[in-house]
């Protein structure tokens, strides 16, 4: 199925829960409202015309420019995106799904944004979401085991955020 057809089918099924798309990009993508991601993913996995049985990658991107001088030229509004790369082994087609979220919950710096987990839909999402939580600071709601996976449990901050402050000290080990 072509990306444009997939987009059409999703719009027919979910209406305004599909908040955007670019079907002519290098990797065509569809944007989904955060609250609907579980519903849409389950449909993407189970619908006989789509059958996206594999989640190749789940990662988060921080669209933010901490340098005030460069921020004026920055092409995007500050936000965080979670990107799901899907593949169907049966029908051999790809799709990229994006979910946009504000950088902080209720614009309170330090409050992590929330996105529902898809770990019930694709089992591998469990570890990928733990990594996204660890490095980007996104709370995946209803996740069975949302702990840090790569950094130690007492680590502070989320390293892949653009405004991350590098620690000067960790348990007596000096940083920069």
């Amino acid at each position: 199925m072509s990306p444009a057809d997939i987009h059409q089918q999703l719009v027919r099924q979910f209406g305004d829960k599909i908040t955007g798309a670019n079907v002519t990009a290098l990797d065509p993508w569809v944007e989904v409202a955060p609250a609907a991601i579980v519903e849409v993913s389950t449909y993407l996995r189970d619908d006989p015309a789509l059958l996206f049985d594999a989640l190749n990658d789940l990662c988060a991107v921080d669209y933010f420019e901490p340098d005030a001088k460069k921020a004026a030229k920055f092409a995007h509004q500050p936000h965080i995106e979670v990107v799901y790369h899907l593949y169907s082994y049966t029908l051999k087609h790809h799709l990229k799904v994006k979910v946009k979220s504000p950088r902080w919950l209720n614009d309170q710096a330090g409050e992590l944004p929330e996105i529902p987990t898809v770990s019930k839909v694709w089992l591998i999402a469990d570890w990928h979401e733990r990594e996204a939580y660890d490095l980007m600071g996104i709370t995946f709601t209803n996740h069975p085991n949302l702990r840090r996976i790569l950094c130690p449990e007492d680590w502070e901050g989320h390293a892949l955020r653009k405004d991350y402050d590098f620690p000067l000290e960790y348990h007596g080990i000096r940083g920069q």
Partner: peptide, 8 residues
């Protein structure tokens, strides 16, 4: 086979 695919 199913678990292998779902676990990526």
């Amino acid at each position: 086979r199913e678990k292998a695919i779902s676990y990526g």
